[in-house]
Every structure is written in structure tokens, then in C-alpha cells.
Simulated scan of single mutants.
Amino acid sequence: MNIFRLAADMTHLLSIVVLLLKIHTIKSCAGISLKTQELYALVFATRYLDLFTVFLSLYNTVMKLIFLGSSFSIVWYMRNHKVVRQTYDKDHDTFRHYFLVIPCFFLALLVNYKLTVREVLWAFSVYLEAVAILPQLVLLQRTRNVDNLTGNYVFLLGAYRGLYLVNWVYRYLMEEHYLRWISWIAGIVQTALYLDFFYYYLKSWRNSEKLQLPA
């Protein structure tokens, strides 16, 4: 594993820690899209079907368990915790996320590395992860004022994907025959969705101002 892959994984893990800190400590999910969290839970559930059948390393297995466990835990808290669920902004979190799931599934049937159940679902998880942040970004666009923990969470998610792009460039240069077009294109699309948010996040950080997104 190279340093860029490790940095990306740790950034992803840190984003989850920030979100769990908000939910468990502050008992609030204000500004967090349940639709996005449900999409991430679906992403990990369809990607890690080999969790108990293929062993690559202890690190790989532990990270899979963390991402699966944390994603479903977040969804459960936002739906069922009597305090946390009261802070959920369902009036603004109205993005119809099945409009993302259905096209991604059909795309996975058409574009995959191998037409098997596991490979199709893996491709589906990659395509869905690329757009899973959209309900979250739309929610922030509607509410405009973004608290620090939510802003940090979204920024870290975007940074994780950006670091994975660097990891792929590094592997392409250092490893022979390393081609992963599905991951590369989906990763570029996913990173591009964050660019507008990055601009306003870094602008507010530089000016020591509260993060506000344009209407």
C-alpha cells in the first residue's frame, strides 16, 4: 500500500469520526442528509460481498467492517434515536435518491469488468458512490448556513476522493498494466461534484468566517 492510499483511507475514516462525533456527542444530525447516508450504506453493502469469503489482509477486513458498521449505525441513529431523529431536517432533505440508484444499476449491467453478480454489484457500488453525495450537497445548498462539523465532514469526504485520484496516478506510473477505467472515471466525476463546495469551504476557512453557500 502506498502513502496516498493510506492517506485517503485515513481521511475517509476521519470523516466518519467527525460525523459520529456530531451524532453521538452533540445528539444532532442537523444539516446531514439521511438520503446520502442510506446511499453510502447501500454502496458498502454491495461492494463488500466478499467480506467473509476473500481475505486480503487484516487491514482490509477491518476497514470494510468499519465502513459497513458505521454507515448502518448512522442510518439507524438518524431514523430511530429519539433525540437525534428530532434534529433531522426532512423538509429540506427531499432529493429523490432512487433517481440515482436505478440509473447506476442499469449502468452497472452495461459497463462492468465481468458479467457476474459480484462484479455487477461492485460496479454498481462504484457508480453509486460517485453520486451519493448529491443529496447532501443539495441539502446544504437549500439551508445555506453550514455548521463546522458538517462542513468538515463533507470536506473530508471530498478530500478522501481527491487523494484516491492521486493514488491511482501513482499506481499507474509505478505498476505495469494497472488500468481501472470504471474507478477512474467514477472518481473524477465524484471529485468534480465537490469542487464548488471546496471553493466556499476554503474561502470561509481563509477568512475565518462561517461557511455559507450561495442560494
Rank of each mutant, 00 (worst) to 15 (best):
residue 2 N to H: 10
residue 3 I to W: 13
residue 4 F to N: 12
residue 7 A to E: 04
residue 8 A to S: 14
residue 12 H to C: 08
residue 16 I to Q: 13
residue 19 L to H: 07
residue 31 G to L: 11
residue 32 I to E: 12
residue 35 K to Y: 04
residue 38 E to A: 07
residue 38 E to S: 12
residue 47 R to N: 01
residue 47 R to P: 02
residue 53 T to C: 01
residue 56 L to C: 00
residue 57 S to G: 04
residue 58 L to H: 07
residue 58 L to C: 01
residue 60 N to E: 12
residue 62 V to R: 06
residue 66 I to P: 02
residue 67 F to S: 10
residue 67 F to E: 12
residue 77 Y to Q: 11
residue 77 Y to T: 00
residue 77 Y to S: 07
residue 81 H to Y: 08
residue 82 K to I: 02
residue 91 D to I: 06
residue 92 H to M: 07
residue 93 D to R: 06
residue 93 D to Q: 11
residue 100 L to T: 02
residue 100 L to H: 10
residue 108 A to Y: 07
residue 109 L to I: 08
residue 110 L to Y: 14
residue 111 V to Y: 12
residue 113 Y to S: 10
residue 114 K to M: 08
residue 121 L to N: 04
residue 124 F to V: 02
residue 126 V to T: 14
residue 131 V to E: 04
residue 136 Q to D: 10
residue 138 V to L: 08
residue 144 R to F: 03
residue 146 V to K: 04
residue 156 L to N: 06
residue 156 L to H: 05
residue 156 L to F: 15
residue 156 L to C: 07
residue 157 L to C: 15
residue 158 G to R: 00
residue 166 V to I: 15
residue 171 R to Q: 10
residue 172 Y to A: 12
residue 175 E to R: 03
residue 176 E to F: 01
residue 180 R to V: 15
residue 182 I to M: 11
residue 183 S to E: 15
residue 199 Y to R: 13
residue 200 Y to M: 00
residue 203 K to R: 13
residue 204 S to I: 03
residue 207 N to T: 09
